[in-house]
Each structure stands twice: as C-alpha cells, then as structure tokens.
Design a protein around this nucleic acid. Structure first.
Lengths: 194, 194
DNA sequence: GTCTATAGGCAGATAGAC
DNA sequence: GTCTATCTGCCTATAGAC
C-alpha cells in the first residue's frame, strides 16, 4: 500500500475516481486498465502497483462506494426532519446518480453478477442489505411519526422501494430521460402517502 | 441465409437458443462465439456462416425475444378475463424468466446499453416502448372495468410498473431468491387495488 | 512510483478446403 | 454447412530498469 497523507488526492484515489465513473457507465467487464491509464496519463503497468489485479480494483471501488453511501444515509438521518423527508432525500440520492448519466454501481453489478469475482459478489449483496436495513428502519419511523403509510412488513416494503428505484434508473438510462425516473419515483412516494 | 423448413429446429435456431440463455445470464459482452460453439458441438468459424458478426447475432436475439414476448402478450389479451387478471399474468411472465435463473433480456441489455451496437440499442428501446404501450392500454381497460385503481396518467403508471418489475428481477437475482421478486410484485399489485 | 517490454490468453473475424 | 488454420487486436498481468 502506498503511503499517503490524509487529505491528499493520491494516484490510488484518482484511479478510483476514473474507474468508478467507467464502471457506473459500462459495468465491471467493459472497461480496461488501458482506459484508466490513458485518462490518468500513466501506463497500465503502473496501475498494478496500486491495485495488483482487476478484482482488487473492483472490490476497492465497491467498498468506497458503499462507505460513501453510508455516510450519505447518516447525513440524511441527521438533517431530515421526519421519515417522509428522509425518504425524499433518499430518492434524490438516486436521482443525483442518474443526473451524472451514471447507473447505481451495485445495480449495474447486479446485472453482471454471475461473472463477478466472489469478493465483489459479497460486497454487492452487502450494499443491498444495508440499504434495505436502513429503509426498513425508516419505514418503521414513518409509521410511528405518521408521515409514511404502508401495509405489510417493513422489510418487504423496503425491498420493493429499493427494487423500484434500481429498476427506474435501469430503464431510464437508455432513454437518457430524467423525467422517466422522476415519474416512477413520484408514483412510489404517492403510494406511501395514501 | 440458410434454407430451412418451417418447423425444423435448424442450426441457426439452436444457436439462438444457446446464445439467448447465455445473454440473459451474463449479458451481451460476457459470452463468446467459443461458448456457443463448444455447447453446440461445432466450431466458431461455422457460427459466422449463420451470423456474420456478433452484432448481427445480438440483434437476432432481441428480435426473436421481442416477437415471442409480443405473442405472449397477445395470448394474455385473448385468455385473461379482465384487466387485473391480465396484469397478474404479465407479472407471472417475469416471474417465469427469473424461475429459469435468467434476467429479462432487455433489462440486462439496459445495464450494458452504452456499450451495445446501435442496432441493438434501438431494439432494446423498442421492447420497452411496446411493453409500456401495452401496459398503458391495460391500465385504461382496468380503470374502465374497475379491476385496477391508480392515480396519474396511465403512461406514467405503466413506466412505473415496468421499472418495478425490471428492478425486482435485477435485485432478486444476486440473492437467488424468488420470494424477493414475489414480495415486490405483490406490493405492486396491492398498490393498484387500493 | 513509474517506466519499457513482453508474456500468454482469449476475443471476433476471415480465407479457403471439403 | 462445417472444417482447419490463421490473423489481428485487446485484455490482464509480470519482470526488471530507473
């Protein structure tokens, strides 16, 4: 591991930035070390110093993505006034990804799932699990504070919310149409108000 | 083009059968002519006689898939007694795909969308368009016959239904868990009853 | 940390015999 | 229609100099 200062944006981190964008657009199997090297202005061989293999790079990408996502959830928990506002902020997290013309990293990896290295598969599952846990707690809070209405187990509804948002991103992207995502998201929110 | 009898399962058709399964599991960029050739027991070179390039093969796969899907929709229109029953049959189409441990072909292609040949991109869009058209008509019928309740434009709700089902398949597959899909689908149906 | 050079494999594709 | 043989290109990865 290269030694780095705390706040510095070292090469290893810049590699992740570039690879992250490529992976969220093309998926894990459709970008190469050459793509990253060209964009970063170093050689392919140098990349192997920071990430010995593509599997390690892929794992590092999911780990950082999941950590940042967790931090965003913590921010929402801190800032939003009630459960409904938290859910709106959560939906907006997804919209933000699409606005950058990207797909949710774990959504695109779910499509490639059977072709992924084992370690990456586990991390994808972990991402979904964490999201569903957070959403289930949110739903319980929304039931308690009266800002969210639903029937059935919170865990099942949480699965449904995650599925709907991932699917809305997936289908919206070929159309390049934010409104398509917004329509599905609006419908989702409406269903939790009734 | 090879000459074939009407009902015969010629080599070209068997190639599609094998490639279809591979594509619905791994996606377009993650199977090779070698995979098909090995499974079929012929050489890679022979495949090029039936489909000159991978782009042509990919296009043929979507075309056949979309045609069969359309036929299934026509069957539903003919057999199901009311709009709600039709929607249930539609959801069961998706569940059937997942039961075979596959993903919707166009769902998985949506994830790879930016990397696909132009002709394939158009066909993916066409598949989604046709599904949404059919669903929108279904919703209007359900509104008329009273078996489906919803608010908003039928076109938007149709988008939401398609997104939810695609997303439910996408997220359920890493878990290998049919129940996960069923939960999301059940929630979807419940939302159209209220 | 980054480089040059190269290995070794697999991809899609083509020529031409049968 | 299917074969053998081959091509070219890209991929991940490694060795070793600087």
């Amino acid at each position: 591991m290269p030694v780095r200062n705390r706040k510095e944006s070292g090469t290893a981190e810049r590699v992740l930035d570039i690879a992250e964008r490529l992976m969220q657009i093309r998926g894990f199997n459709n970008f190469s070390y050459a793509d990253i090297a060209t964009e970063l202005g170093i050689t392919k061989a140098s990349l192997h110093y920071h990430y010995p293999g593509k599997a390690e790079l892929g794992q590092a990408l999911i780990t950082r993505y999941t950590r940042r996502f967790s931090e965003a959830l913590a921010d929402i928990d801190r800032d939003a006034p009630d459960a409904r506002a938290k859910l709106e902020a959560y939906v907006d997290l997804y919209a933000g990804v699409l606005r950058n013309e990207r797909m949710c990293m774990c959504g695109i990896l779910a499509a490639e799932y059977p072709t992924l290295p084992d370690a990456m598969q586990s991390e994808v599952i972990g991402f979904f699990d964490e999201n569903q846990r957070w959403l289930a707690e949110l739903l319980k809070a929304g039931d308690a504070d009266g800002t969210l209405k639903f029937t059935g187990r919170p865990e099942d509804v949480a699965q449904g919310i995650l599925s709907t948002l991932e699917g809305a991103m997936l289908v919206a992207r070929p159309y390049g149409d934010l409104a398509r995502f917004a329509a599905a998201a609006g419908q989702l929110m409406a269903g939790l108000t009734t």
